[in-house]
Simulated scan of single mutants.
Amino acid sequence: MRVVIADDAPLIREGVARLLTENGVEVVDEAGDAETLLASVRDLSPDVALVDIRMPPTHTDEGLRAAREIRSRYPGTAVLVLSQHLEPDYALRLVEEKPERVGYLMKERVGRVQQLLDALQRVAGGECVVDRAVVDELLAQRRRADPIAELTSREREILALMAEGRSNRGISRTLWLSPKTVETHIRGAFAKLGITEAPEDNRRVLAVLAYLRR
């Protein structure tokens, strides 16, 4: 397997290159910036480009933009991003366009050389590899963006009955629950929806509106 390594930190770049070489990977070039990386991929057609996100000149997303350009212009080269920072939005932008021959790993979570070798082999073979920490954060973001997703099935059921205009007593009779249990579920739903400081009737309306907008 032929690999190009792109990282603006020479010690990291050279260290990774040495580890890969010692384990049978051919490191065909090393790049300290996105422009050099793109030229290397163009001229050498490596199997995989191992890329850091933050590179010169601004140290923001140059590596990510280079990775996306590689995927667009040089589809024969797989891309594995190895980042020091947990940036799930970047990972999503990289992966969602075409979830194959691409990966995103956290440097601090690659504890063994074999993990990196395995990820390189997998993306070179056409797979998509994403660090579990990135997946967890993306799911957490989705839950934060959609509080309805946080509700239990019982809380959703009660909100649906509230949307039909049922009182707590009516909900209690319909679901064969005690009024106290219904009130507990309603308070839980209000808390998850961020509806805490309002008169009871207004809170019911706000909760129903949140449910109907889902």
Rank of each mutant, 00 (worst) to 15 (best):
G15H: 11
I5R: 03
L161S: 07
T21I: 10
N168H: 12
L138T: 03
Y104M: 01
R109I: 01
S83A: 12
S45W: 00
D61P: 00
N202G: 01
L50F: 02
E155P: 07
K98Y: 05
P147V: 06
D146E: 14
S178L: 06
L175R: 04
G111I: 09
R73Q: 12
A39H: 06
M1E: 11
L116Y: 14
G32E: 04
N202M: 12
G165W: 06
R65M: 15
V123H: 07
T21F: 00
G170N: 08
R68S: 09
A91Y: 10
P56R: 03
E26N: 14
E22Q: 15
I186E: 10
D201C: 00
T184P: 00
E183C: 07
D7K: 08
A145S: 12
V134D: 05
R101S: 09
E100W: 03
S72M: 09
R18A: 13
R169M: 14
I12Q: 07
A191W: 01
G76W: 03
P10L: 08
L64R: 08
T36D: 13
R132M: 06
V48S: 01
L37E: 05
R203Q: 13
Q114D: 14
N23Q: 11
D47A: 14
L44I: 03
L37Y: 10
G194T: 11
E62F: 02
L44E: 10
T21C: 07
P199G: 08
A124I: 04
R214S: 09
T77S: 12
A66C: 11
R204N: 03
A119M: 11
E26Y: 03
